[in-house]
Amino acid sequence: MTTEPTPIYELTDPRPIAESAPYTFFLPNAVEITAVAKGDLVKLTFEYPHETEKWAAERMWVIVEDVRGDELIGVLDNHPSEPTTTLKAGAEVRFARHNIISIEWASPEKAPSGLIVTDESF
């Protein structure tokens, strides 16, 4: 009988945290998240499912390399601080748009303003 290897990380869904702490935990808006493209840096929260020495979770940057609708593929742009993880800078990371907690635009001048104007805004 073969057993599946233990995943080295799980990505956090930050939406429930943002809902429970709307004044202290901010996420990019839907316009910004939809605009994420190749070359942009996005911050994700990596949770370690194994026993750790320092951190059960780390927020780290990923460079977006490919976009396939809601699925994005990137490479880790940080060196994890948790000594027990085998995750390394340069590792491929597959994630969904809803995992994004922050964005650094490759071309800030082309970044969306994020402002959505409706009749109710006036």
Rank of each mutant, 00 (worst) to 15 (best):
E4L: 14
E4S: 13
E4Y: 12
P5W: 13
P5M: 12
I8A: 11
Y9K: 00
Y9C: 03
E10H: 14
T12S: 05
T12P: 00
D13C: 05
D13I: 03
P14G: 09
P14Q: 09
R15K: 11
P16Y: 09
I17G: 12
A18K: 08
E19I: 05
E19D: 15
P22N: 11
P22C: 09
P22A: 11
T24L: 03
T24W: 02
F26P: 02
L27F: 09
P28G: 08
V31S: 15
V31Y: 07
V31P: 00
E32S: 14
E32A: 15
E32G: 08
I33D: 06
A35T: 07
V36N: 03
K38R: 15
G39L: 10
D40C: 11
D40M: 11
L41H: 11
L41Q: 12
K43C: 00
L44P: 01
F46K: 00
E47K: 15
E47G: 10
Y48D: 04
Y48I: 03
H50C: 06
E51K: 14
E51R: 14
E51S: 10
E53M: 05
K54C: 02
A56F: 13
R59F: 01
R59K: 14
V62I: 06
V62R: 01
V62H: 01
E65R: 15
D66K: 15
D66H: 02
V67Y: 04
V67E: 07
R68A: 07
R68P: 00
G69C: 03
D70H: 09
D70R: 06
E71A: 05
E71N: 04
L72D: 02
L72K: 02
I73W: 04
G74F: 03
G74L: 02
V75Q: 11
D77H: 00
D77Q: 01
N78A: 06
H79L: 09
P80E: 06
P80C: 12
S81K: 06
E82P: 03
E82F: 08
P83H: 14
T84I: 00
T85C: 10
T85L: 07
T85H: 01
T85S: 01
K88P: 02
G90I: 00
G90R: 00
G90F: 05
A91H: 01
A91Y: 02
E92K: 02
V93L: 02
V93W: 00
A96L: 15
R97T: 10
R97Y: 02
H98V: 13
H98F: 12
N99A: 15
N99R: 09
I101A: 01
S102L: 10
S102F: 11
I103M: 07
E104C: 09
W105K: 03
W105D: 08
A106R: 04
A106Y: 08
S107Q: 15
S107D: 15
S107G: 05
S107C: 08
K110P: 00
A111L: 08
P112E: 11
S113W: 10
S113K: 12
L115F: 10
L115G: 02
I116P: 01
I116M: 13
V117R: 11
V117L: 13
V117C: 06
V117E: 14
V117G: 04
V117S: 08
T118S: 12
D119E: 15
S121E: 10
S121R: 12
